[in-house]
């Protein structure tokens, strides 16, 4: 068992298989890489300093981008939906409809896609660059577990900051919606928010938050996987960053599809 764990730490060169075998081989590597997170995530020693640094990088530094996006989404969704609802004289349902759309679906998915681009590429590029310049090997030969120091801290940070960013985006999105409502008519802020929030219940908020944690996990682990396994040469750093964004964005949609099916069961 312990010998197996040693083999996981050592980069083993394998003969190049055909493309389908290559895909399955990579997928297996990814499962094993992700599995190590669950093995190592609660085991000491803990790297608090690096974890907080990553929270700042992934969470705090993403705030301006998700704020702007959330505001625009709320504003546009309200402006686009208003004429259709007005046809049926159902304008009063607009705050509730926008709140449900943003909190259940649009907020988490849009935030996760932004994070896949921003956080995923940053992790892929940073770890890829560390791999290429032998910084990861330097940690390994200094008896420091690079997976624990670099990957576990980043994935934990992504798991915590993505849901926090989703909550923030949802709130800003509702503010955008309120501004859009006031373009055509005057609606009191208190009335708008109480109407919007009154249609929401536990089944709208809780699954969205759980889904956001899973989005965060996949964004973090895919970004780290791509960077950690970058090959030698500076070209591979760009490739790691690019494939991190593409794979993480795809993973967001797949997780969303599965999450919707599960939510529908309850």
């Amino acid at each position: 068992m312990e010998k197996n764990s040693l083999m996981n730490q050592i980069s083993v060169e394998k003969p190049r298989p055909s493309s389908i075998r290559n895909w399955f081989s990579q997928f297996g590597d990814f499962i094993s890489f992700s599995g190590r997170f669950f093995k190592d995530c609660l085991r000491p020693p803990y790297n608090h300093g690096e974890f907080f640094r990553q929270c700042i990088e992934t969470g705090y530094r993403s705030l301006p981008l998700v704020s702007l996006t959330g505001f625009i989404i709320g504003l546009v969704l309200t402006l686009q939906s208003r004429p259709s609802l007005a046809t049926f004289g159902a304008e009063s349902l607009l705050p509730g409809m926008v709140a449900t759309s943003i909190i259940r679906e649009i907020g988490p998915v849009i935030t996760a896609l932004i994070c896949a681009g921003k956080i995923g590429s940053a992790m892929g590029a940073e770890l890829g660059s560390m791999r290429v310049t032998e910084q990861i090997d330097a940690m390994e030969v200094s008896s420091i577990n690079p997976y624990k120091y670099l990957v576990v801290t980043r994935v934990w940070a992504a798991c915590l900051t993505v849901p926090a960013l989703v909550v923030f985006t949802d709130a800003i999105g509702l503010c955008g919606s309120y501004v859009a409502m006031n373009v055509h008519s005057h609606v009191e802020a208190r009335r708008f928010f109480s109407t919007a929030l009154s249609v929401l219940d536990f089944r709208d908020i809780f699954p969205a938050l759980i889904k956001s944690v899973v989005f965060g996990f996949f964004i973090g682990v895919i970004g780290c996987y791509r960077g950690y396994n970058a090959k030698s040469g500076t070209e591979s750093v760009g490739r790691a960053a690019n494939s991190a964004v593409v794979s993480a964005s795809l993973a967001v949609f797949i997780v969303d599809l599965i999450a919707v099916q599960i939510t529908d069961l309850f």
Partner: peptide, 16 residues
Amino acid sequence: IRLQVGFLFQGAALYD
């Protein structure tokens, strides 16, 4: 065992 060994990499591999 690695604790007893030092490794100076060609590019020094300093943490950026």
